[in-house]
Structures are given as C-alpha cells and as structure tokens.
Amino acid sequence: MSASACAEPLDLSVLIDHWLGDLAPDEDERAEEHLLGCAACSKRMGDLVALTGGVRSLANLGVVRAVVTGAFLERLIDEGLRVREYRLAPGGSVECTVTPSDDLVAARLAADLRGVPHVDLVKCDAEGREKNRLKDIPLSASAQEVVFLERIDHIRALPACVQRVRLVAPDAGGDRLLAEYTFVHTRSSHD
C-alpha cells in the first residue's frame, strides 16, 4: 500500500471517466487497481464522488437552475419527483404558480432553433427590461424546444408579477429575437 502521496496520480478526467464507465476496459482495470492501492487518489476519488452526489441532491431539491431536456424531466418524474411543467408556444402566455407539493418547476419553450448556432435565454421584467441572461444555452438534439428548470426556492420567494423570457440569437449587431414567452406569476394560495 502506498503512503498518502502518489508518485503517479490519476488525472481528474480519468477519475471521472472511471466513475461513469467511460474508460476502455483495460484502462478502467488499471484505474481500479490503482485506486485500491493508493490512498491519495482514492481520497480524490471520494471527494469527486461526494461532489457528484451533491449535484444530484441539489437537482432533486430543485435548487439548481439549468437547461435540461424533455427526456431528463421524464426520468425525474419516473423517480417520483413532482415536476410542475409549463409548456408555451412562441408568443405564448401562461398563468403560473408553485405549490408546496411541487419538487421542481420547468418551462418548456417551443421554438424552431434549427440552424441557430448560439442562443441566449434572457429573463426580463414586465416592461421588457433585461434582468438576467443565460448565455449560450445548450440546445436539445431536436432543437425544437428549450427545457428550463428554474430554482424553486427563487420562485417561491417571488411576489405576484409578470416576467418575460426571450430566446435570442446574439450577433455583432445585437440580439435577434427568436421567440418571447410571458409568465404571469401568482403566489400559491397554500403559501
């Protein structure tokens, strides 16, 4: 068994790939043997696994804002999480809220984004003033929809208000508007 220092520490990318089963079989076996014999790398691996578990826990608590996919939402629902979804067409408006029984809140914004290289999601107030911008969001493989998980703790803290969300294609001349959606938020009667 080696001492706490490691002469040939495994690279972070090898540790991640090993954890997720992304290594080739022979490389995977070498990593496995190294980890069982090396306190330093095993400690780094343990920290990494704790971090990934933390990401999972926070996502389940609804406190991670992220652009995801429809398939991801389906997996959450299959696991028993209660996901409140709002589906909007371009130009659409919806009355929305969040109740104490909701675990997560998702907006599903339909839009034809095929061929658009970069898209920003811009959150604006009722008058259209920009408040927050998510730059270069990942687009789903179909590029027909943006699925956005908002932090549920932030929504719970909102007063009744109107928020506009825009999908824009940024370029040298400014933003080209692709679609806009309106959320008319009211607090839940259970709050």
């Binding site: 790939d17 954890w19 997720l20 089963g21 992304d22 990934t52 578990g53 990401v55 999972r56 996502a59 389940n60 991670v64 804002r65 992220a66 652009v67 995801v68 996919t69 398939a71 991801f72 997996r75 959450l76 999601l121 998510l134 730059k135 270069d136 969001i137 990942p138 687009l139 789903s140 493989a141 179909s142 590029a143 998980l149």
Partner: peptide, 28 residues
C-alpha cells in the same frame, strides 16, 4: 458555471449517464 457546464453536470450526475448518453440528448 456556464450554462453548458451546468447542464452537462446535471444531466450526467443526476442519473450517472455516460458522455455518449448525454451527447445524444444534447445534440453534442
């Protein structure tokens, strides 16, 4: 984190998915 970074982490580590599986979902 950047939006792509956060999305990839959430999609990867929520259900322990490989790079190939996440790539298929995100079109990368």
């Amino acid at each position: 984190l950047g939006e792509r970074e956060r999305s990839v982490l959430v999609l990867t580590f929520h259900s322990e998915r490989t790079a190939f599986e996440v790539a298929q979902e995100l079109g990368l």
